[in-house]
Computed example of a mutant assay.
Amino acid sequence: MATTKLKGNVVNLSGAELNVGAVAPVVKVVAQDLSEVEVGGQKGKAQIIVVVPSLDTPVCAAETRKFNEEAAKIENAEVTVVSMDLPFAMGRFCTTEGIENLTVASDFRNKAFSKFYGVLIADGPLAGVTCRAVFVVNASGVITYKEICPEITEEPNYEGALAAAKDATSTSCCGTCQ
């Protein structure tokens, strides 16, 4: 079972443990307008899937703002921030923060994304929400970068994720060769 930490205390994660080289499962999450959005799978462009516990925390808000700013700079890529927030709260956050270059989505209905991607916190004070993670999926639907942040209260490795996203925008390789 995968783990992360919350303020230094180990918390377990539940669900499938996906790694680099695996095909990213196609999962439906809920957009701020209550429509369904698909993440994962083969889309013909790179995907940056940013996972946060809640947009209503300073670290998650800062992370979302940073990816919103940087997303506009990467051609042939889409960014989706997945949390357990209700769509109404996500909409309010995006309006207040001026988030326009990425999609926010919620896994609140059935937690399918969290289970398929192995990012559901299984115990501790945040049990039932997502940990902090970043997945980059290439145009062929293969995971080329994965970071489960070792400490939930700290931001991810932006440089690593963004570099992987730029590499993943290439459509010349299916991602399975080395």
Rank of each mutant, 00 (worst) to 15 (best):
V104N: 06
T176W: 06
A164E: 04
G124I: 05
V136T: 03
L120K: 07
R65L: 11
V134M: 06
T144Q: 15
G41K: 02
Q32H: 11
V39H: 07
F67T: 02
D33H: 06
E78G: 06
A71R: 02
A22P: 00
S54L: 05
S170P: 00
A71I: 03
V129M: 13
E97G: 00
I48Y: 01
M84L: 13
A72Y: 07
S170R: 06
S170I: 04
G141E: 08
R132Q: 06
A2P: 14
A2I: 08
A112K: 13
T57R: 08
C174M: 11
V142L: 12
A122Y: 10
L162F: 15
E17N: 12
I148S: 04
G175Q: 07
G118Y: 11
M1T: 10
L6I: 12
E78K: 01
T103K: 14
K43W: 02
T144W: 04
D107C: 09
Q32D: 15
A165K: 00
G8D: 07
G91R: 15
S83I: 04
I152R: 00
G21N: 10
C177T: 12
A165Q: 02
E17Y: 07
N19T: 13
G118N: 09
K115R: 14
S35H: 14
K43N: 12
S106L: 03
N76L: 04
S54T: 13
M84A: 13
E159Y: 02
A139Y: 05
C94M: 14
S114F: 03
S140V: 01
T153R: 05
F93G: 02
E97W: 03
N101Y: 07
N68G: 08
A112N: 10
E97C: 02
T130R: 03
T103V: 15
S172M: 12
R92F: 05
A22T: 09
A62H: 09
P125D: 14
V27S: 11
G91D: 10
N19F: 05
E155T: 11
G160Q: 07
P150A: 14
V51K: 01
A72Q: 13
A164K: 01
T4Q: 08
V137W: 05
L34N: 15
E100W: 00
C177G: 12
R65F: 01
G8Y: 10
F67R: 03
A31H: 07
N19H: 11
I121L: 15
Q47E: 15
P58M: 12
K45V: 03
G15Y: 10
A122D: 15
I152P: 02
E159S: 14
V37I: 15
V137D: 01
C131W: 07
A161Y: 09
C94F: 02
C173F: 15
P156K: 04
S35R: 14
F88S: 07
G124E: 05
T3Q: 11
L102K: 06
A112G: 01
V52A: 12
E78I: 04
T176N: 13
M84K: 08
A24W: 08
K66M: 13
E63P: 00
E70A: 10
M1H: 09
M90P: 00
N138V: 09
G44F: 14
V11E: 09
V50S: 13
I74R: 05
K146M: 08
